[in-house]
Nucleic acid binder design. Structure first.
Lengths: 231, 231
DNA sequence: CACCGTCTTTGCGCCAACGCAATTAACCAG
DNA sequence: CTGGTTAATTGCGTTGGCGCAAAGACGGTG
């Protein structure tokens, strides 16, 4: 089915799995490629929903900001992920902002076009429901962690989850394969960069992790998992 | 379109909005009514997904429990709401438990039947995507609150939100129209019943609320909103 | 290579919220 | 009306994590 590399990418993503080739061709015809260098913003919170993207390469960060400037990281996106789920649900505005943390390649297409094709192809719509369900469950889990666990466990859980979705085996352990600062971890776990720094320092001393400037390597994943689970 | 009260109820719910009558008839033919007295469980966390419900009357609580027995309340459901969204997404097991807090009437139908009809009616699938998107946004908001706000503000926000979805005007203010204990509020805001109790006592003294055993009346909604927003 | 901005570390004081415990209040069943 | 059960209140001691501040490390840039 290798008529075009982009069609292959679409076909492999969760959203367009099992969709007939002619529909993929139609999608592809309306799509374009776009690069976002590290640090660039794909869209801001409250922006009108105009375009829909799928990640080809790179990592992006989804954030939400309060009126008084406090920010939290909702999730990270990687290859194959949907960027801007509001285009799926039909919401008029983006509930969060998306920023490239790496150099990224995205496939984009106009949001109304996607909605139209989706309404004529229930397979895509069914995939979209499943996708939203998974994301919903992720948030449920994080909400529970935030509500019931102490900071150290939350950070441990977060690192383990990141290693699942963006871990790279290295000689020194599993490396989180994108720039990740103390501040970022703080915004993911509902704490401050100071507490994150202290926590990592402690783990570093015990040989659990090996971290540096915007870089975290999990040296002993099993030991970290123990920290995450201990009562 | 009043051929049957149940068809009317379905047609008014978010999920089946705009769906042709003959499809509603098909759904109705496969559906049944079921009562759940207050306190009864509709399904447990991890239960297999077999049945799908829509609330007709009553309130239900969706909870998630950790291995070590800690519980949080994900949300409350009321008339028109979907019970067990896993039946929509196709997940094999329920990610949370649902319990009636009132005496409830639900309309139920087999989950595979719903999935089948949905896959043949993209309008239902599109509605489902929109519905999941709304729920996702709700969780995003709560996550942000939990991560960035102090307890008092979280409780205030939670009460205001509950008054939106289940508030009843009374002489003394807006009453949350279902039994709601301090423990319940604690499980919604990620704190302890003690802290909730102290907070409500404080508000009570200032005349903001008027609460009692499993009962909360918001006497001054504007003043409570101020508490929720103040820095 | 030296500079500068960004990120990280660490010390210290403080306070919001927790945890425990004991008392009181409300509701229900018989 | 009474006894029993469940919910709510409140006092008290403790502490995890915050907030502030200052110093140190890293890495990119001219």
């Amino acid at each position: 089915m290798a008529e075009s590399p982009d069609i292959d990418i679409l076909a492999r993503g969760e959203l367009f799995r099992g969709v007939p080739v002619e529909v993929l061709r139609e999608l592809h015809a309306a799509s374009f490629r776009r690069k976002f260098p590290a640090g660039e913003t794909v869209f801001q919170q409250e922006d009108a929903v105009t375009t829909f993207y799928i990640v080809v390469v790179g990592r992006l960060r989804v954030t939400q900001t309060t009126l008084d400037g406090q920010q939290i990281i909702i999730r990270y996106l990687g290859p194959g992920d949907v960027v801007g789920y509001a285009a799926l649900t039909g919401a008029p505005a983006h509930p969060g902002a998306v920023t490239a943390v790496d150099d990224c390649h995205l496939i984009g297409m106009p949001a109304p076009m996607l909605r139209d094709i989706m309404s004529r192809n229930s397979r895509i719509a069914m995939n979209a429901v499943a996708l939203m369900g998974e994301r919903y469950q992720d948030l449920q889990l994080r909400l529970r962690e935030l509500a019931t666990e102490k900071v150290e466990r939350r950070i441990a859980h977060t690192l383990l989850r990141l290693s699942q979705q963006a871990g790279r085996r290295t000689a020194r352990g599993i490396e989180i394969a994108f720039p990740l600062s103390r501040q970022d971890l703080a915004e993911m776990t509902g704490t401050t960069l100071h507490t994150v720094s202290r926590t990592l320092s402690g783990w570093e001393a015990r040989g659990l992790v090996d971290s540096g400037r915007r870089r975290v390597i999990i040296a002993k994943p099993e030991a970290l998992a123990e920290v995450a689970e201990e009562v």
